[in-house]
């Protein structure tokens, strides 16, 4: 074989292998989607059915049984609100850390991250007691506060590593020209860090949407999010796979589709300055 032929072969093998790996890793998810459109009998047929007449029945039953829309609304409200609130808290903090660096900046940052390393379950009893006494148990407000706080360290850190890339002189210059702090934020910093802000917000949305621990323990019928709803489907053993799949499909579809469209943007900030 000549060199060109070898290169061509490598090219083909690479492409085929890439597709195989991607399909293999996507398979469980694809299977979930397929199962959502099967009848319960088809869902557990041996051997598994790849081709069948799709049915919408499961979705109708799930909606009738558990008020999907209420849970979806709770998920949407809590994740959007906690993202906005988190950005509002993290933006000034990251600005201050990145442009007025002191000896202690790094310690503060590491301390913030370390609060995130403690398993949430460690704070469960106190947080539950606090939520109960303040009447925030099973309210979206309670979940928004908890989501915001548990995402805050990551948000500050992401924004900080993003801001660090910006030369301080630019901000200095705008201040020389008499820009107020607000103008500095809005006219100089915001346009320069739009990408970082977007990816921080996106990640926070995904994390809040998928958050399962606090929503399982702090919310029930009124403020329950989709993650909690799905967990409630875990009890019936076996034979409700099609309905379970339909419910799961409805719970993940919004965020997965959202993720597909925003993945390029999301990745930029996720690298935490590790990639130049």
């Amino acid at each position: 074989m000549t060199q060109t032929q070898i290169n061509k072969l490598i090219y083909v093998v690479r492409a085929v292998l890439s597709w195989a790996v991607a399909l293999f890793l996507f398979f469980p998810l694809g299977w979930l989607v397929l199962t959502a459109f099967k009848t319960e009998l088809q869902a557990i047929s041996v051997p598994p059915l790849l081709f069948f007449k799709p049915t919408m029945e499961n979705f109708i039953i799930v909606e009738a049984r558990s008020d999907y829309l209420l849970y979806a609304q709770n998920s949407l409200v809590t994740s959007v609100a906690s993202t906005v609130l988190g950005l509002a808290l993290a933006f000034p903090a990251a600005y201050s850390m990145a442009f007025f660096r002191t000896k202690r900046t790094k310690d503060i940052l590491m301390w913030m991250l370390s609060t995130k390393m403690m398993p949430a379950v460690g704070a469960l009893v106190p947080v539950y007691v606090m939520a109960q006494t303040s009447g925030l148990l099973d309210t979206t407000t309670g979940l928004i506060i908890v989501f915001t706080l548990s995402n805050l360290p990551i948000m500050v850190w992401m924004l900080y590593s993003n801001f660090k890339e910006i030369p301080g002189e630019i901000l200095e210059a705008s201040r020389m020209d008499g820009a107020s702090l607000w103008q500095e934020f809005r006219l100089v910093l915001l346009p320069l860090t739009m990408g970082g802000l977007a990816s921080t917000g996106l990640l926070c949305l995904v994390l809040s949407w998928n958050e399962a621990f606090w929503s399982l323990n702090l919310s029930a019928a009124k403020a329950g999010t989709l993650a909690a709803l799905i967990a409630s489907y875990s009890s019936p053993e076996g034979l409700f796979w099609a309905k379970l799949s339909a419910a799961s499909f409805m719970a993940v579809a919004p965020i997965v589709v959202f993720g597909w469209f925003s993945q390029k943007q999301l990745v930029q900030g996720l690298t935490f300055g590790a990639v130049k």
Partner: peptide, 26 residues
């Protein structure tokens, strides 16, 4: 690009769905 999208998808799945999916269907 499609391969990338397929590869990234599991990241957006909530842990509860992920766990139930593996427990029952896989």
């Amino acid at each position: 690009n499609i391969v990338r999208i397929l590869l990234i998808s599991p990241f957006f799945i909530m842990p509860t769905v992920n766990a139930l999916l593996w427990k029952h269907m896989m």
